[in-house]
């Protein structure tokens, strides 16, 4: 899932200063599951902002709503077609949702209420951890399911650096050394010999380093004349 953290209230309040009628819009998928940008958090943010406004002498008119996925036009259209005229929408979606909303609703101002942090999963209740960078060239087959690009702080492909000690990464005793995990996993499967092979420099052009990416699937594309809605 995509994980996000709500921006500090002071930062949100500052960006909302010029506006009066505000809609705080939750997103019903990833950020709901990671407990930062769903319906409940939209209401909490509204309540906190109302209090803040009262204290700071700012009389905001705040409503809330939620869209199942702010990153898809069909959900945006379904929920927004009859919307009243807000001055501004504070989106609690990830950066993908905020941008999709902006693209779909260019007449509106949509601001981000979250910092999108990473792609990851809930390690335990209340803890989420990053495990994919979307590099566009998956190597999880080599490492049996532990990503060295994401989980090694230095994205090393050829084994642990000299900063690995007692299973921890040099950057923090809270961070596991990915290469210790890989070594243990490969050893357990009697495949540790794999680490002897020199992995060549990675082709980063499949990642964001090749520029913003677009995926085209001609087989499922709809011919322009067949399209039922007009993309903005």
């Amino acid at each position: 899932m995509i994980v996000g953290e709500r921006k500090p209230l002071a930062e949100i309040a500052e960006m909302l200063k010029p506006f009066s009628k505000i809609c705080i819009l939750g997103c019903g998928t990833c950020v709901t599951v990671c407990l930062t940008g769903g319906e409940k958090e939209a209401e909490e943010t509204a309540a906190a902002l109302t209090l803040w406004g009262q204290k700071e002498g700012k009389n905001w008119d705040i409503s809330t709503g939620t869209i199942l996925r702010q990153c898809e036009y069909e959900y945006i259209d379904e929920y927004t077609k009859d919307w009243p005229q807000y001055d501004v929408i504070l989106s609690l979606a990830c950066g993908v949702g905020v941008q999709t909303m902006n693209t779909r609703l260019p007449e509106k101002i949509i601001l981000p209420g979250l910092n999108t942090t990473f792609m990851g999963y809930p390690l335990e209740q209340g803890v989420w951890t990053e495990n994919c960078l979307g590099c566009g060239n998956c190597v999880l087959d080599l490492t049996l399911g532990i990503c060295p690009i994401t989980r090694c702080s230095k994205s090393m492909l050829n084994g642990p650096c000299g900063g690995s000690q007692e299973g921890k990464c040099e950057i923090s005793s809270e961070v596991e050394c990915a290469w210790q995990l890989i070594y243990d996993r490969l050893t357990q499967k009697q495949l540790a010999g794999r680490m002897d092979e020199i992995q060549p420099p990675k082709d980063w052009s499949t990642s964001h380093h090749g520029g913003p990416r677009t995926m085209v699937r001609e087989d499922v594309r709809v011919e322009p004349e067949e399209q039922t809605r007009t993309d903005v």
């Binding site: 084994g159 642990p160 690995s164 210790q180 540790a192 002897d196 020199i198």
Partner: peptide, 15 residues
């Protein structure tokens, strides 16, 4: 030689 996993450190040198 003082980093871990210790048993991998000579192999790493070989690499």
């Amino acid at each position: 030689p003082f980093a871990d996993p210790f048993e991998y450190r000579a192999l790493r040198l070989a690499k």
